[in-house]
Amino acid sequence: MSGATLTLASPGLSLFTPLRAVLALALVLLVLLLLSLSHGAVGIPLQAMPQLLFGDIPADHLEMQLWQSVLLEVRLPRALFAILAGGVLALTGVLAQALFRNPLAEPALVGMVSGGALGAVGVIVLGGGSFLLLAPAAFIGSLITTVCAYHLGRRYPGVAGLLLAGVAINAICFSLIGLFTYLADDTQLRTLTFWNMGSLAGARWPLLAWLTPWLLGLSLLALRYWRGLNALLLGEREALHLGFPIKALRRQLIVLMALLVGPLVAATGGIGFIGLVVPHLVRMVLGADHRSLLPAAMLGGACALLAADWLARIAVMPAELPIGIVTSLIGGPFFLYLLLKGRPV
C-alpha cells in the first residue's frame, strides 16, 4: 500500500476507494447529463446530439434547429445550473455538519436558506429585484441566521439544541417573509411569486456566467479546509490542540457557507434536503474523512439535483413540477429514517 492511500480514507465498503468512488460519481454524472440533455418535452434523439452540440445544422432543417435551440439555450444551461447548485448544496451540507458536529445539520434545517430567502424577499419589497442586490442581501440573511443557529444550537447538547434553534429561526424568518409579502404591492408580489417559484428555470447563460466562477472558486477554497473539518469532528478542543485557531476557523466556515448559500438561494429559492441526504450517503460508503468526502459529496449532490430536475421536467410533460417538491419528497422520508435509526455516521 502506498503512502498516499494510507492517509486517505480506508473505505467502509472495501469495494470503493475514495479515488474510485469519485471517478464512479463523475461517470454517473456524465451519464445523467446525457440523459437529462436528451429527455424532455421536446424529444431529441441521442444520436443527433454530437451534431447539435458541435456541428453545423443545415439551414433548412427546421426540426434540428428547434432541437439545437432547446438543447443549447434551455437544457444545457439548466443542467449545468443543476450540477452547480447540487454540488454547492451538498458541499454546504458537509460544512454545516462538521461545524455543528452534527450529521443532521443542513443549510435549510439550521435556517441558512430561510435567512437567505428573507434577505432576498426583503430586497424585492424594499428595493428592486435585481440579482446583483438579491445575492448580497441573501448572503447577509444567511450569515445572520447561521451565526444565531450556531450560538443557540450549542446551548443544548446533541441534536435537540440544533433542531430547536433551527425551528425557531425558520419560524421567525418565515413570519418575516409573510410580513414582507403582506406589505408588498402588486408588482412586488409578482416578482416575489416568480422568485418563489424560480427553482432552476431561471438558468440562463448570463446568470451562469458569473455564478459559476463565484461558486466554483469558493468550493475549491472549501476543499482546502479538509484538515480543519476533520479535526472539528474530533471536537473543538481537540481541533485547537491540533493547531487550528478554532474561533477563526468557525468564523471562516460560517462566512464561507453564507457566501455559497446566499447567492444560490437568491438564484434558485430553497431546494431542501440535498445537503442532508447526499453527505449522509457518501459518508456511509466512504467514511467521514473530508479529504474524500468534500469532492465526493459535491459530485453526489450534482448527480442528485440533476436527476431530480430531470424527474421534475419529465413527470408531467409538457408542464413541470417545482424541483423543491421532488427533492423534499425524496429527502423528507429519508430524514425521518435518519432520526429514527439514530446511527452515527
Binding site: G40, G43, L66, R313, A319, E320
Partner: peptide, 19 residues
C-alpha cells in the same frame, strides 16, 4: 388542451415542444 404549467411558472421547453 395540453397544459404547459401555471402561467406564473410555465415550462419553456413545454411550450417549445408544442411548436
Amino acid at each position: 388542451i395540453p397544459k404547459v404549467g401555471y402561467y406564473r411558472s410555465f415550462s419553456v421547453e413545454g411550450v417549445l415542444s408544442l411548436r
